[in-house]
Design a binder for these strands. Structure first.
Length: 366
DNA sequence: AATTCGTGGCG
DNA sequence: TCGCCAAGAAT
């Protein structure tokens, strides 16, 4: 039989694929904390944490979250700072802000009961088509497809999809939907993701253990990792940043809370900014602190230098101690400022790179 | 439609 | 050391 690249096998083969995948899942599927749950709230939290984040990373956060916020109402009643503290280090902090917003919406509009209709789930902040499909199939066993990174890779390989990834989404959704086992949507979707995470991996797929080996066109080419087809990403710019630890006479430190929108939104940080052309680091820090807080400081000794990579740029943080001189500090470019002791830093959410600064402060202080 | 959003692990 | 990429969504 001749098989065309980019198209699904006939319905008979599709049935074989469903059966073999579900059979494989029964034997080799992963045991995960959220897998046997049916509480849509708990499943929702897992789906959001797992966006662009590996299972291994999520495991450390998930149980802690459910312990702190066991119910949707407890979450809705919580302070956003408390929520962000629990999310600290997990990244993509808009996820945490959206979870909190969505919880408030569910309480206000649905009396605290998580909605069971696809369109209502999709309308919640932070939930797109894939997450909505994951929640509704997992919690309610309703037949909606998913299309995460795993499924894109599996399906693109299965049919050797001859389209670059950003443009292939429409076809991939169609493939995921037509392949879905409508009698077992929950297990089928979970099985797809397990297959992608453990067998059909990005770099060295274990094709000899794949239930779909005999039907996979990419396997037959001998170079399955050629799919999905991607465009190379542009190089990430590197920014040099000056950061000030502003000490008061009472051994307190001045910190600011970032605006809710944008990078690291809502988190606390030590003030600072980008070094300009022909400027020394102390000059940069002095200028940035004047611009951001409208105060005068004296820049002192170097504390630590930290290299950190974000998703689309890299930074080097050059951190210096500073001594507060004069002026009433104002949150000119942040939403809040606060003088805190070293111990009080632990109660507030900081970005990962700033946690390294705090660690250095502790070592120097002890 | 193309960007912007964190962090960790891996080859 | 560096680029890739992970249970994507919002704008």
């Amino acid at each position: 039989m001749k098989v065309e690249s980019g198209t699904l096998p006939d319905s008979k083969i599709c049935k074989v694929l469903r059966t073999s995948l579900l059979d494989w899942y029964g034997k080799f599927g992963r045991t995960l904390p959220w897998r046997n749950l049916r509480d849509p709230y708990a499943i929702w939290i897992s789906e959001i944490m797992l966006q662009q984040t590996q299972v291994k990373t999520v495991l450390g956060y998930y149980d802690r979250w459910l312990q702190k916020f066991p119910t949707l109402k407890s979450l809705a009643a919580a302070d956003i700072q408390q929520v962000l503290k629990l999310w600290e280090g997990l990244g993509y902090y808009s996820r945490a802000r959206n979870i909190h917003k969505a919880a408030g919406k569910i309480v206000a509009e649905y009396n605290g009961k998580f909605p069971q209709e696809f369109d209502r789930i999709l309308a919640l902040p932070g939930i797109g088509r894939t997450t909505a499909g994951g929640i509704i199939s997992s919690a309610f066993n309703q037949p909606f497809p998913i299309l995460d990174g795993n499924v894109k890779r599996i399906l693109a390989r299965l049919v050797t999809l001859p389209v670059l990834l950003p443009k292939a989404n429409k076809q991939l959704w169609q493939l995921s939907e037509s392949l879905l086992d409508r009698q077992h949507p929950r297990d089928f979707n979970q099985a797809l993701m397990d297959l992608g995470a453990t067998i059909c991996t990005p770099k060295s797929p274990k094709c000899d253990r794949c239930p779909w080996m005999n039907h996979c066109l990419a396997y037959q080419t001998g170079t399955p990792t050629s799919w999905p087809m991607r465009t190379s990403s542009p190089p990430r710019p590197h920014k040099i940043i000056g950061v000030g630890i502003i000490w008061s006479d009472r051994q307190q430190i001045l910190i600011d809370r970032r605006l809710d929108d944008g990078l690291l939104g809502g988190l606390w940080e030590f003030p600072g900014g980008k070094v300009e052309e022909g400027e020394t680091l102390p000059e940069c820090i002095h200028r940035e602190i004047k611009e951001e807080l409208d105060i005068e400081v004296e820049v002192g000794s170097h504390l630590i230098t930290i290299d950190h990579a974000y998703s689309h740029f890299r930074v080097t943080l050059n951190v210096y101690h500073c001594h507060y001189i004069s002026g009433e500090p104002k949150p000119l470019e942040s939403q809040e400022i606060r003088w805190v002791s070293l111990d009080e830093l632990d109660e507030l959410p900081f970005p990962k790179a700033n946690l390294k600064i705090i660690e250095a402060l502790r070592q120097e202080n002890s």
